[in-house]
Amino acid sequence: MTALLQVRGLSKAFGGVQAVRAVDFDLKPGELLAMIGPNGAGKSTCFNLINGQLQPDAGSVRLAGEEMIGLTPRRIWRLGVGRTFQIAAAFASMSVRENVQMVLIAHHRRLRALLPSAAALYRDEAMALLEQVGMAGQAERACGILAYGDIKRVELALALAAAPRMLLMDEPTAGMAPAERKALMALTASIVRERGIAVLFTEHDMDVVFGHADRIMVLDRGQKIAEGEPEAVRADPQVQASYLGSGAPAGAGWEADA
């Protein structure tokens, strides 16, 4: 299958610190690629370069053959690249359904129709998305009173509302209990594979990474030191020497932040 995302030679320095060094990788539709590494490895910088929040010193980022370097985050979103963040956010005073409707309205370029007809716009579509992520029963509750795990599900619905071809997911299970983490990532994997959405995600829970990623890419000090299927990465001598250690559990030596 042809790659949806092609990253070549991606590099970024901040002063004398080389945050990302000539990183290359591809991402196919329906594939989940985990980007992992210790604190300061360059994961968040890579995300911000791909998403247009930072401009690289060198390199290329192509989505379906179209160069994204130099585009604004809004334009990149319009091309079909969604993003979720480590700290989930929604309009606290609005209902779960209203939050999803707002994204649908923006996606369909209907912002001028917000008043007075907003409450009726894309209501059924919003409810269908909430049903898919298991939040239809809480559609009329204000987001500000939801449990954090439920907010993470709402955030997934918000990302899906823009019909993305690719998702950048920054710590999608951060702040959740272990059982919630596994359930949310299993749900995410099921939905994105069904829809053929490419996913690049970072995650500090190695059980989640090794349990759900199709491939894993390991960064260290801005450089890619390993890439492959989970078991191949787990057995990689350089990864073991740097982080996992002989006989150490899968998560040993890893940090959550980029």
Rank of each mutant, 00 (worst) to 15 (best):
M1C: 08
A3Y: 05
L4K: 13
Q6Y: 00
Q6W: 00
S11V: 06
F14G: 15
Q18N: 12
A19L: 07
V20K: 12
A22D: 14
V23K: 01
V23E: 12
D26W: 10
L27T: 11
G30P: 09
G30L: 07
E31F: 01
L32M: 14
G37M: 04
K43G: 01
K43A: 04
S44N: 04
C46V: 08
F47R: 03
N48T: 05
N48Y: 14
G52R: 02
Q53L: 11
R62Q: 13
R62C: 15
R62I: 00
R62H: 09
A64H: 03
A64M: 04
G65P: 00
E66D: 09
M68T: 04
M68A: 12
V81M: 12
G82W: 00
R83V: 02
I87A: 07
A89F: 05
A90I: 13
A90D: 00
F91D: 00
A92D: 02
S95K: 08
R97N: 04
R97C: 08
E98C: 08
N99K: 09
V100K: 06
V100F: 06
Q101R: 03
M102P: 06
V103L: 03
I105Q: 02
A106Q: 08
H107P: 01
H108T: 01
L111N: 09
R112M: 05
R112V: 06
A118W: 15
A119L: 06
A120R: 12
A120H: 13
L121N: 02
Y122M: 01
R123F: 02
E125D: 07
A126D: 06
M127W: 15
M127L: 11
L129T: 08
L130C: 04
E131N: 04
M135Y: 02
M135K: 06
G144K: 09
I145K: 15
L146I: 05
L146C: 06
A147D: 03
A147K: 14
Y148I: 00
I151W: 01
V154H: 12
L160P: 05
A162N: 08
R165D: 07
L167W: 01
L167Y: 06
D170M: 06
D170F: 09
T173Q: 09
M176D: 06
E180P: 07
K182W: 15
A183K: 15
M185T: 11
L187W: 10
A189Y: 13
A189I: 03
S190E: 11
I191A: 02
I191G: 02
I191Q: 11
I191W: 12
E194T: 01
I197Q: 06
H204P: 02
D205K: 06
M206W: 05
D207P: 03
D207T: 06
V208F: 01
G211R: 14
R215V: 00
R215M: 07
M217L: 10
R221A: 11
K224L: 09
I225K: 10
A226M: 07
E227N: 11
E227M: 14
P230G: 15
P230D: 08
V233K: 04
R234L: 14
V239W: 01
S242D: 07
L244Y: 02
L244Q: 13
G245F: 05
G245Y: 08
S246V: 11
G247S: 13
G247C: 08
A248V: 09
P249R: 15
W254F: 13
E255V: 04
E255S: 12
D257P: 07
D257N: 13
